[in-house]
């Protein structure tokens, strides 16, 4: 490995790589945020919905969870444009990752809610709380503690899946790295660098998750 050349080329390509990293962060934050909003709705529908709604949402989650993200990305980009919805590569990519994220968050929320024993809901009812109140004050606080670790895991999965957007032409961090490699031929050095950067991003997310977990933990 030639690290003198690597650092020189890294400096030359810094703006390209930073732009790429910016795209990766934007894609990930956007998809996780939107995916979480949608996913909570999916989780609630799966837990408390009318049987017909539950059935439809169940198909939605199973279909999305059973489809490779890669295929979802291609579908959002190409199939939607055939039916007249012309999304840019960036929008199509974020949409695909949002859908993927929502199905996972939906399952996480459903799992957390159904893990809370029935006695809790009954106790809430017996002291006269409405469904809304019992959800906000009794169920959600407990479910959140369950959700957080797996939710953080989903977020890191989305960061990694964002690399797939390069196939439809979004210049995220991996494609930006490949562009530098194609010019410099320093493949080992730059792929190693990309690996370290992705690790750092995900490590930061995990640490942030741990921090929040500690803050919201029930004191012994």
């Amino acid at each position: 490995m030639n690290f003198t050349l690597f650092f020189a080329d890294l400096w030359t390509a810094r703006m390209n790589l930073l732009n790429g990293l910016g795209q990766t962060v934007l894609i990930s934050v956007g998809s996780v945020f939107l995916g979480t909003l949608l996913g909570v709705a999916v989780g609630l529908a799966l837990t408390y919905g009318h049987w017909l709604l539950r059935f439809v949402v169940r198909i939605y989650t199973d279909f999305l969870r059973g489809t490779p993200v890669f295929v979802l990305i291609l579908a959002c980009f190409y199939i939607l444009s055939v039916v007249g919805i012309d999304l840019s590569a960036f929008e199509a990519g974020v949409l695909a990752l949002t859908l993927f994220c929502s199905s996972h968050v939906g399952e996480i929320v459903r799992g957390a809610l159904s893990a809370i024993s029935k006695g809790q809901t009954e106790a809430a009812k017996s002291i006269g709380l409405t469904f809304r109140q019992s959800f906000v004050y009794v169920l959600m606080p407990q479910a959140l503690r369950q959700i957080l670790p797996t939710w953080v895991n989903t977020a890191t999965e989305i960061v990694k899946a964002s690399t797939l957007l390069s196939i439809i032409g979004v210049v995220e961090f991996l494609l930006a790295t490949q562009q530098v490699i194609s010019r410099t031929y320093l493949s080992l050095e730059f792929y190693l660098f990309a690996g370290v950067v992705y690790f750092l991003v995900n490590f930061a997310i995990e640490q942030a998750g741990r921090f929040v977990e500690r803050r919201i933990a029930i004191p012994n």
């Binding site: 030359t12 390509a13 390209n16 732009n19 494609l175 490949q178 562009q179 490699i181 194609s182 010019r183």
Partner: peptide, 14 residues
Amino acid sequence: GSTNPPWHFMDGDN
């Protein structure tokens, strides 16, 4: 494309 010199690639000025 953007990754195959000398056909289509990013130069040092991005």
